[in-house]
Amino acid sequence: MGMMLVFVLILASFLGFELISKVPAQLHTPLMSGSNAISGITVVGAILSLSGAFVIEGEVMTIILGTLSVFFATINVVGGYMVTDRMLSMFNTGKKGDQS
């Protein structure tokens, strides 16, 4: 079973690289928004996993890994939205009458 999971990870890595490398520059912002939504789901899953560790009185390592997963997934979501906002602001031409 473990070897199958490693195979899936390697296959997903190659497939992801091929897909992302073929995306035109105009589509990077919508793609980034979609990946942020997926990361948001990761945060929810990590929180649910962490709450299950407290209910069952899980091991210390389970609680530490759950906390780290919530932390890093949250950083990924916030950072992704910041990058998306910055990319979208580059396309903002300003409103009429705006002097800045």
Rank of each mutant, 00 (worst) to 15 (best):
V83D: 06
K95T: 15
N76V: 04
A53M: 09
L19T: 06
T84K: 11
G52A: 05
Q99P: 03
S69T: 13
I38R: 08
S89E: 15
P24A: 00
L11N: 02
F7K: 04
D85I: 08
G40E: 02
L27Q: 13
L11E: 01
S35W: 14
I47M: 09
S51G: 03
P30L: 13
V83K: 03
G40C: 08
T62N: 11
N36A: 12
V77N: 01
T74G: 11
I64M: 10
V43T: 10
L65N: 03
G79L: 06
G80A: 04
V78L: 13
G34W: 13
K96L: 14
K22Q: 09
M61K: 05
V6K: 06
I63L: 09
M90K: 08
S69R: 04
I41K: 02
K95E: 14
N76Q: 12
M3K: 12
F54Q: 11
I41L: 11
V55G: 09
I63P: 01
T29F: 00
K22N: 05
F7W: 11
S33W: 07
S13R: 06
P30Y: 01
S13C: 04
S49M: 13
I75S: 00
G79D: 02
V77P: 05
I56K: 08
M32E: 07
V43D: 07
L31E: 02
S51N: 04
G34M: 12
M4T: 06
Q26C: 00
N92D: 15
F14K: 05
A53N: 06
G45Q: 07
T84M: 09
I20V: 15
S13Y: 08
F71K: 01
V44S: 07
L68P: 00
G80I: 02
S100D: 10
